[in-house]
Structure formats: structure tokens, C-alpha cells
């Protein structure tokens, strides 16, 4: 058995000292395809953000190979769609690892961007500005950006939210393609049929890890009921976590 791609050791994440994810330990296997599920407020997006390196943990460690290339798809609502850049420029940002913050976009890079746009069926839309795209087209564009990022670990935050079935099916196809290439994928999902049909592994989160393993073993009524109960425990007047002061 090879070493896991990612190890989370007693990781606590949160905002303003209130934990959103509390003492989570888990290992993500290389090449796995994992659905990250749980009720609203369970800390799914927070966990994904931390894995993407966009949020520092309050305590605990996340162990990953330094050379690990990570691609992160934030919730599409986080985008400012009124900002006047065109689709091509948004997608081309996926080549950040080649261009850096200052490098120019060469001819070979443009060919790559074009190919990624064709792969998601958006050829001809290059010069459209973001506010002229439908929700589905924008999500396709963000997947094209993911293609260009050419990452080992792909983190997707609600990739199918407000997306029609045809587009969801196309995007799921691409996820399976990445899985077949040996990439590791973690996706935040709410649609249980999609989880059951397409994601072999699941991690059920309710601020703490409720269950992690094969999807069939995780998605039991007992686990889901427990997850719903745990989420209501947020307390404005919470004391300093006792688990920490023991150690």
C-alpha cells in the first residue's frame, strides 16, 4: 500500500477561533475519488479551502508532498462576474504554474487554452465577457481552467450547484476521465444519487468526521442522522476546547 497523498492530523479549521472543522484526522489515498458530504455548515467548503492552501488551520497539521500540484474550484458564486474580462483570460489563468504572476502567455500556451475550451464545448465563446455567460457555461469554463492546471489533486466545491443534467453529465464525464488518469479528486456534493453512482469514496463531515470510507458504508441512515444532530452544536459562548488543554 502506497503512502497516502494527504494526511490530516488533528486538524481544526475555523474563523475567529470558532471551529468550522473540529479535530479532523483523515487520509486521502492517491488516485481516490472522494465525495465530501454533510449538512450545511458542516465545514465542507472550509476544509476544501484549507486543502487548497487558501486558509491556514487553527491547529493540527496537513501533511502533503511539497511538489503536489493542487487545483481548486471555488463555489462559482464567489466569482465577480461583473468584472470585465473575457472567457479566454479567465480560463488562461489555469496556466498560472507556467506563466506565474508576471510571465507572458506564449503561442503554445494559447493553443493549450484553445484545446481546453474545445474540450468543454466553449469554442467560439473566447471573447465573451463573464456576465454574458450562463451558469452552465461559466462552470464549463471553470472546468477548462482545471484542465489547464494539470493538477495531481483536484478540489471541487459544489461543482454541480444550479447546473442542468446535460452539463452535469458532461462535467461528471471529465471527472471520471481525471480519475482514470490517476488524479486524486475531492468534491463537495449535496446530490446523493450522484454520490452513490459516481463516487467510490465518501467523507461525511459534520464539523467532525462522522464517517470516511467506501460510499456504501458511509451513507447509512444512522450516519446521516448523527451528522444532522452534530451540526446544531454551534455555541456563541463556547469555552476553550477541552480536547486541546488535555494534550
Amino acid at each position: 500500500m502506497s503512502a497516502p497523498l494527504l494526511s490530516l492530523r488533528d486538524v481544526t479549521l475555523g474563523y475567529d477561533r470558532h471551529p468550522a472543522v473540529h479535530h479532523l484526522s483523515a487520509e486521502i489515498e492517491r488516485g481516490s475519488l472522494t465525495a465530501l458530504i454533510g449538512p450545511n455548515g458542516a465545514g465542507k467548503s472550509t476544509l476544501l479551502k484549507a486543502l487548497a492552501g487558501a486558509l491556514d488551520q487553527l491547529s493540527g497539521t496537513i501533511v502533503a508532498d511539497a511538489s503536489l500540484r493542487i487545483a481548486y474550484l471555488p463555489q462559482s458564486a464567489a466569482l465577480d462576474r461583473s468584472f470585465p474580462i473575457c472567457l479566454f483570460d479567465l480560463v488562461a489563468a489555469g496556466l498560472w504554474h507556467r506563466t506565474g504572476a508576471f510571465g507572458s502567455l506564449g503561442k503554445a500556451d494559447r493553443v493549450l487554452v484553445q484545446a481546453a475550451l474545445e474540450r468543454v464545448g466553449l469554442q467560439g465563446f473566447e471573447r465573451r465577457t463573464l456576465d454574458a455567460l450562463s451558469g452552465g457555461q461559466l462552470q464549463r469554463a471553470l472546468f477548462a481552467r482545471l484542465i489547464l492546471q494539470d493538477a495531481d489533486l483536484i478540489l471541487l466545491d459544489e461543482p454541480f450547484a444550479a447546473i442542468d443534467t446535460k452539463t452535469s453529465a458532461d462535467l461528471l464525464d471529465m471527472i471520471h476521465g481525471w480519475h482514470a488518469q490517476g488524479r486524486t479528486i475531492i468534491a463537495v456534493l449535496h446530490d446523493m444519487p450522484i454520490v452513490r453512482d459516481h463516487f467510490p469514496q465518501s467523507l461525511l463531515l459534520a464539523r467532525e468526521c462522522v464517517a470516511h470510507g467506501s460510499t456504501d458504508a458511509v451513507l447509512t441512515e444512522r450516519h446521516l442522522a448523527r451528522a444532522r444532530q452534530m451540526i446544531e452544536a454551534f455555541d456563541e459562548e463556547a469555552h476553550i476546547c477541552a480536547q486541546d488543554s488535555l494534550s
Binding site: 479551502k49 487548497a52 492552501g53 487558501a54 493542487i70 487545483a71 481548486y72 474550484l73 471555488p74 464567489a78 466569482l79 465577480d80 468584472f83 474580462i85 479567465l90 489563468a93 498560472w96 504554474h97 463573464l130 481552467r145 492546471q149
Partner: peptide, 9 residues
């Protein structure tokens, strides 16, 4: 445009 994406790269 996309600050969380930028923070990840």
C-alpha cells in the same frame, strides 16, 4: 475576479 482561486495558486 476570483480571489479564492488566486489564493490557491
Amino acid at each position: 475576479v476570483d480571489p479564492s482561486f488566486l489564493r490557491s495558486v
